[in-house]
């Protein structure tokens, strides 16, 4: 089974040289720590920065320089600042090649819910709806089940949607799956996790083809 760092490491293997990448809050942010050697990617932060660098040293902290999670950050050589409309212009126009975000639910049609639990939690969608409506390649990073042990990979999302038919890949603590033709296709098992365990934890339609390899992390 993977922890959140393991999930981030597996997602980092999906990065390709030259990609512009937007990382959401939470596990997705950790992907930046595991960029494979020889791969050059540029991180877009939707509050208005292309070329996001690592967190600053204490003496470098600048209140005017934050990421979309409101954390203090730094720039890289070649970074650019811009306004929010310009930022979402590049997102909607499909210039950002990979988006990684968290979710409360994902379903077998690629629908995602991650912004609202009616009557309980309403924080807002932030930039997630714009991102999922436009990106070609979207990976969801999340735990396979919720705190009650219920599957988060469903036949149909039950919570208010963030976007429809948009998610292509899901990496969880148990597995790496692709969403294709109305089903989750199991591509890899997390280390030490059996196909049976993944079956049990997946409520949506799951397709298992031949021997499913274990991830190499």
């Amino acid at each position: 089974m993977l922890d959140k760092h393991g999930i981030a490491k597996r997602i980092a293997q999906e990065l390709e040289d030259g990609y512009y990448v937007n990382l959401g809050i939470g596990i997705p942010t950790l992907v930046a720590n595991y960029i494979p050697k020889g791969i050059d990617v540029t991180f877009q932060s939707e509050n208005g920065l292309l070329g996001m660098g690592p967190f600053p040293k204490a003496e470098e902290v600048d209140a005017d320089l934050i990421n979309a999670g409101k954390q203090t950050i730094t720039t890289m050589p070649g970074s650019v600042f811009f306004d929010s409309a310009y930022s979402f212009a590049m997102i909607r126009a499909g210039k950002v090649q990979l988006t990684v975000l968290g979710a409360m639910e994902v379903d077998q049609n690629g629908d995602i819910a991650n912004w609202k639990i009616p009557g309980k939690m309403v924080k807002g969608m932030g930039g997630a709806m714009d991102l999922v409506a436009s990106a070609e390649n979207i990976i969801v990073a999340m735990m396979h089940t919720n705190k009650k042990g219920e599957s988060k990979l469903l036949e149909k999302c039950t919570l208010p949607l963030t976007g429809v038919n948009c998610i292509t890949k899901v990496v969880t603590n148990l597995a790496f799956l692709e969403i294709k033709n109305g089903a989750f296709v199991l591509k890899e098992r997390a280390p030490g996790v059996s196909v049976e365990e993944i079956k049990t934890a997946t409520q949506g339609k799951l397709i298992i083809e031949g021997d499913v390899p274990e991830m190499r992390i």
Binding site: A85, R92, M129
Partner: peptide
């Protein structure tokens, strides 16, 4: 952001894919 940009640019409305199906 676009609602502000467009409003400030004399464009009263626009089409966006964000939120379709939600």
């Amino acid at each position: 952001a676009e609602k502000c940009r467009a409003g400030g640019a004399g464009i009263p409305a626009f089409f966006t894919p964000a939120g379709y199906g939600t």
